[in-house]
Design a binder for these strands. Sequence first.
DNA 1: GACTTGCGACTTTTT
DNA 2: GTCGCAAGTC
Length: 661
Amino acid sequence: MFASTWRDGLTDAQLRAAAHGDAPLVVVAGAGTGKTRTLVARVADLLDRDVPAERILLLTFTRRAADDMLARARDLVGRGSAVPVGGTFHALAHRVLSSHPEGVGLSPDFGVLDPSEATDLMDLMRAEHGLAGSSERFPRASTLVDIYSRCVNRGEPLREVVPAEFPWCAPHLESIGPLFRAYTARKRESNVVDFDDLLLFWRALLAAEGTTRSFDHVLVDEYQDVNALQVDIVRLLAPDGRGLTIVGDEAQSIYGFRGADSRLLRETIASLPDATVIRLEENFRSRQPILDVANEVRPREDDEGLSLRSTRGDGPTPRLVHCHDAAGEARAIVTAILEAHEEGLPLREQAVLVRAAHHSDLVEVELTARRVPYRKYGGLRFLEAAHVRDFVAAVRLLDSPRDEVAWYRLLRLHEAIGTARARDLIDAVRELRVDPLEQWPDLVAQVTPTARDGLSTTLATLLAARDHARAADRADAVIEAIRPLITGRYPDAVTRLGDLERLAGAAGDARSLRAWLAEVTLDPPHSTSDLAGPPHLDEDFVIISTIHSAKGLEWSAVHVPHVIDGVIPIDMALGSDDGLLEERRLFYVAVTRARDTLRLYAPLRLPHHRHAADDRHSFAPISRFVDDVVRARLVVEEQLPAREEPVTPVGRASLDLDHLW
DNA sequence: GACTTGCGACTTTTT
DNA sequence: GTCGCAAGTC
């Protein structure tokens, strides 16, 4: 027996969960109650009990969470070689499909469409169906992908989902059905799957396998964020509930827009009559005054009143800071961050958590102006940036020279090739018998003289990229092929090419560029800086993150700007009770990220439009979640009109430019 | 006929 | 930053 240390420092409840036998187990874990630690201990216990590592499956919300937990479990058990299986639902599905592609009618080299590529394909279908330029506005491709995804993940028919959640699209209901059928058919023809297919196909494979179990133990983290499809998968993985461990907290369910439904946690518990439910309420993260706020914010509808108690005792009372406007708010936040830094708190222990990525714009300006380094997580995904998509399209053509979406994107980057000519060329691609990329001169012959040089350079260079086997070299060669296109198209081409070079470097010695790209698609970098690998220890920077991306993380000091109605809760969620409830849970998640200090900010006035040149403002009422009871637990501070610099009228002379002409 | 350019409107959250 | 639309140009 190894000197296992996983029991050290666990509470009674955590220990009971960790050492629980094989019967179904549900851990209801409030924020900061050592959920990760408990799961790690449970994995360690299983390994200790000689459950073979490859018979243990750990499903988590992010790949990073899985890697982190598995590494910690191995450290505890002290066994270097045993590697339990772990990852996100989507990553696991990809792994399973890669070994049995024929089971669902895919050929072995199938590709994974990232959401932006899925949108491109939907756009292409939309155009082919003549729905693009019709008189009434037809839903945008991205909306269509949302609708499609909602139907698949919830297992609900189109005619129910659209009226309920996308009422403005209801007039087009008749056209959407055939469109989705075409979208699905085209994916099959092109041998690609989207994210939803990964889950769908995994479920189909599991159902076909019947009762053969691949895993003795299945542990599911963040269960409150699973959708119906994922529940099915879990049920098929552990049909009788034996060996099933689920961990969740209804009050932290914040992915409703992705088909998650916090009620599924309760339904799952109800469906497992012999399940043991263990509740973790002792909070090791936050000072009590922060939890006092959290307990008030926590929606009571969700459970029988789980209430957090701090083991860390008293601390400073959280503050609510009223500011004049968003600029004043940004100044107040940065000032507070710098003061804490002066007193010895590293920048990386301080986070600014926002509802939507753009809410940190002014904070970023202020940080930059005062030369404070920061990193931003969430918001525009790296893979969604136009130049990265251009690159991905080119890479895709190397392996799948008949991928129409990729051709469409790449062709239109050229001078004198627009939508119409690109479509003609794609028709030509379809006609070509052998590899269309190798026959590039045939394609070039069909374009106008203006386009000829550019296109032949691109395609010839791209074809040459096939000569490189090593993933990073191949990626570099693809960059060479699209370099002129990037340079010609984007004013900030240098930065963008730098991004791509970093991306290419990260591919390193991967098995194949294509496989590597599929992995990146499923587990994308949160920011370009992520590609550079883990930051050096001596680097210090403030964290800016969306609340969604902050899930599972914690900082000593947390700043939440824009705690006003219309942002938290966001105005588009005000239409339904469910929407409003989810916003409340989101606020709860934000509040419970803080260990020692929490500051909420409410600007008095906000501009009507984000980039508006005019000075139209509206007055911003404080968030309805900060009611009298919550307010009573806060120190309220006024930082009203920022002292204006006295305005000295300039003399006419300094405005006179005559001497310049 | 097709492409380019310019303008205005809009932009939640993510595997 | 991106999309759709309209007018102007090859």
